[in-house]
Every structure is written in C-alpha cells, then in structure tokens.
Design a protein around this nucleic acid. Structure first.
Lengths: 166, 166
DNA sequence: CAGCAATAGTTGATCGTCCAACTATTGAGC
DNA sequence: GCTCAATAGTTGGACGATCAACTATTGCTG
C-alpha cells in the first residue's frame, strides 16, 4: 500500500502547523453549525440564504444557475435542488434564458425579497456574535485576506464538471 | 414580520467586513471540498479520518464516544453513525466502558492503523497544497490563532444536547 | 435510599448532498 | 452545413447528516 519513500517524503505538519490546522478545521465547523442554527428558526439554511442573497444583489434580482453555482460554491446538481426548494417556498422562480436556450435564470420574487430581509438581519447578527466579535478588527480582516488567497488558488482548479472535480 | 427598529438597529457589515466574511465562507467551502476529494479515492471522508486520527493519538488508541464527538465537532448521533461505518470497514471496534456502564469506547484496530498511515499522508499533502502553500507561514499561523479564539468562544455554548444546541 | 433529572449512546425517519447518467443546445473544426 | 465535443441544466438513486424519540445508567436532592 504505502511505498516506503512516501512515508519519508511526506512533509508532515510541524507542531505549530498542526495546531493551526486543527484550530481552523474545528473552528470553522463550529462556526457553520452556529450560523445554520441561527437561521433554522426562520426555516432556512445558510446555503439557501446565500443563494437569495446573491440574487438580491444582482441586476434585476436574477442570475443564471451556473453563475449562482460558482458564486456560492455549490455543484450544478446541488444548485438545482436548492433552487427547487426555494421555488416551492415561493421565494424564487425559474425563467428561461433567451440568449442561450440551454440556460435558466433564477429570479427573486417579492416574497423572497421579504423573507430575505428578516433572514439577513438574523444572519448578520450571528456572524458578528460567532465570528467578528471574537476577533480584533484587524485580525478578522487578515483572516478574510488569507482566505481570499486560498479561494483564488482553489477556484481555478474547480472550473469543471458537475461536481467541481476533474 | 420585521419590527421597524430591528432593521435599523442591525449592525450591518461594512464593505471590508462583507468582503472578508464572504472570502472566508467561500474559501473554507472550497477547501473542504478539496480535502474531501483528496481522500475519496482512498474510500474515506475527512470527517472519518478525523475520528481515526484522534484515536491514534489517544493513549491505548481508544476514546469514549462523547470525547470523540467533542474533539471532532460531530453530534452524538453523527458520531454513532460514523463509528458504525468505520466498524463495518474493520478499522475500529466498540468496547464497553466499565467505569461508567453507559459509556462506550471506540478502539482503533490494526487494520485501522494501517489504513490511517496511507490516509494521513494524502491528507497532509492536500492540506499543504490547498491551504498552507497558498499562504505566508506567518499568515497561516495567524489564521490558526484567530480560529482558535473563535473555537474557544463557540465551544462553551455548544456544551449541550445531541445536536449541540440548547 | 427513593425519585427524578441529567448524561451516554443508539435508532430510524427525514432531508440534503453527491454522483452518474441523461437531454438539450451551442460552438468548433473540417 | 455536418459532425462531434463542450456546456447548461435536470433527474433519481445512494449515501451521509440531522432531528426527535428512546433505553440505560448515573448522580443529585431531600
């Protein structure tokens, strides 16, 4: 299974790296749980909120499925299912995209806009409580800056199939 | 729905905060996807690796279910299901915990130890590729430090029921 | 030490995500 | 302009995570 050299060649994490990595992994897990739980009473999920939030900022409150998928980091198939749920709730409607007849646009409805207002408030509160208020302002901005670098690096590769991969 | 004052009182995110938050959210999503995909060919998942990895570091390669759950940030019920999968694979066995007869210990098997070696190598590689190599060393350590603060803040509240919450 | 609340862990139903396979349309190469 | 590859999106089945309900055991309080 393991080639002898592989074990040796591996650049194992140093102690401080190990600690940093675990703090990141567990911290971000706890964070996502906290944010999702904040929205649960409103009948939504963070990933759903992200979708309607992106729609609300787009010109004419509409975006193509694929653009949306890339923005919120969901696979094509996942965004289809997410959209179906939002549509059933009346927050969103699908519309044919005329310039490219393969395309579909997702459009925020008035009901969706209304729901978004409440959800956004709760969401921002929870982001402050769980994340921002626990850090120095500069620390938080540095965090964002670092993660933007990671995002840029990973975004390129992920330009592919249904499920991001190859 | 929305009380008028709530909209006003909300401390909305500033532009830089908004950017930082989105970078964090999307970046960490991409990261988790990348790490999970790295382990997929080995027939595991990141969350499963975390479990056997914690076991391997524990004295006698064993830990109680609840200790494990807290360590890797999984709900009680989720850790039960995860353990069941690992057990079916022969990587782990359940043992009664005598001091407290409600308790169960999860014990890493030799097969589990062997599997872990391969998986750890691949995991570390992917963490470097996807995260560490994209950041300055100091930047990465600062990231870890910040997330540790978040983790500490969120860990307290999360001392509860099956599903973390109240 | 009786009674009851709290803790440890499990179970199964439900729901969300992932993946592979599929249709429809567009674009490129010859 | 025909063929074939690439892209957009959907579908359904398999799998993992969540949640509420449950059993068993322990610990607290009077």
């Amino acid at each position: 299974m393991t080639s002898p050299s592989a074990v040796v060649d591996t650049r194992w994490l140093t102690e401080p790296e190990q600690r940093a990595w675990r703090a990141f992994l567990r911290g971000s897990r706890l964070l996502e749980v906290a944010l999702d739980r904040a929205l649960a009473p409103l009948g939504t999920q963070l990933s759903e909120y992200e979708v309607i939030s992106m729609l609300s900022e787009a010109p004419s409150q509409r975006l193509r499925m694929s653009a949306l998928a890339d923005l919120v980091v969901q696979s094509r198939s996942r965004i289809t299912h997410t959209a179906a749920r939002l549509e059933k709730r009346g927050w969103v409607v699908r519309e044919a995209y005329l310039d490219d007849r393969r395309g579909v646009e997702l459009v925020l409805t008035d009901a969706g806009r209304a729901a978004l207002e409440d959800i956004a408030i709760r969401h921002v509160e929870s982001v402050r409580e769980a994340l921002i208020d626990n850090l120095e302002p500069a620390e938080f901005l540095a965090l964002g800056h670092a993660m933007q670098k990671v995002r840029d690096a990973l975004a390129e590769e992920g330009q592919a199939t249904d499920a991001f991969g190859i």
